[in-house]
Design a binder for these strands. Sequence first.
DNA 1: AAAAAGTAAGTGAATATTCACTTACTAATA
DNA 2: TATTAGTAAGTGAATATTCACTTACTTTTT
Lengths: 197, 197
Amino acid sequence: MELASITKRQKEIIEAAGMILARSGIGGLTTKNLAKELNFTESALYRHFNSKEDIIVSMLDYLACTMDQHFSEIIDTEKPLDVQLMALFDAQFKLFNDNKYFVVVVLSDDLIQNSVAMTNAVKRIMSVKSSHLTTIVEQGQSQGVIIDTIPCDQIIHVIMGAFRLLIVKWRMDSFKFNIKEKGGEMMQALLTMIRLS
Amino acid sequence: MELASITKRQKEIIEAAGMILARSGIGGLTTKNLAKELNFTESALYRHFNSKEDIIVSMLDYLACTMDQHFSEIIDTEKPLDVQLMALFDAQFKLFNDNKYFVVVVLSDDLIQNSVAMTNAVKRIMSVKSSHLTTIVEQGQSQGVIIDTIPCDQIIHVIMGAFRLLIVKWRMDSFKFNIKEKGGEMMQALLTMIRLS
DNA sequence: AAAAAGTAAGTGAATATTCACTTACTAATA
DNA sequence: TATTAGTAAGTGAATATTCACTTACTTTTT
């Protein structure tokens, strides 16, 4: 997962786009709003990107890279399983808290339908998360710490589903509740469900 | 949850809107496309609804009613817990299979941001499902069939999260895989996680 | 002075909605 | 019973607005 070379201005645009997305959804993400958010004109956007789709796809790719980097730094296969798992989600919750707009993008159903490029970009983001999770869960199963009567991908599915739903609720609550706290509780519940001992 | 009085024509419009939503997302749901789908003109839509938002909100409410009815018929508190749970999800998967467009609506994050009326309608749909689930899980916990070391709403959260994610994957797969089959496997995994015995 | 980054003012296409008007059918009245 | 009035459901054309994007020109940076 290589980091695309992105200028300072491009990053600013990407971040503004993300903020708008988080605040008012894909319907709110217009070139006009984007320009206003950045305090310059619509036409100036086209000095830095060829099209609006380009902006979104760049944002998704940037996001995938950031997440991948973030996770890679966190995971330490030497540590006990549940510590790893908690660390992964702690990192994720923190990442989301610092960049709330990630949230919308990560689980936007609507981006999926817009174009092939976007569909693929969204899928890439989903797979980044699930591949890191797989590493942990498989390790846990072979170590006898996680139940192995349930196939690994089912476990991943359940974990990711719970995670996504929490994010949805968070957004519906206008990001008001403490995501790290609620996330922690949720992870405890999940661990209880999948732990062997 | 009372059934709103809806004319035959209104129901047709609602269903067409749902189909478009499932096929091409909220971006595709324009009055033009809707009229084309129904084989009459855009203006005719306004004989039956005051606005496009009205159409969508009516659709969401209709959906909530249908789901509620559907579930109420299914649940039989005399039967064993896992049978009830399986029946509930069987019913849901069947409902979704017969009306694929429900899917998009039920977990559309994008509808949420459009207006207060829509936000509330989406929330209503979510709560229909979770209230029926709560009945079952609480019963299971007091009977000692479901783990009670985890609070009921955490269990509900995990179940609903897994369910929603399955639906997302189904849609990303263009409704190709057999949802009842995959759903059954998923429910088995979930039951293993939350069962006490 | 050349290149990069900005602006003002447009473009055509698409949007939801409204307009005056027609058609087919039903209810009221003479 | 024949005519009149009323209505539900449709039409095509036009509305103002918004969309992503372009062109020609100016400012800023290097």
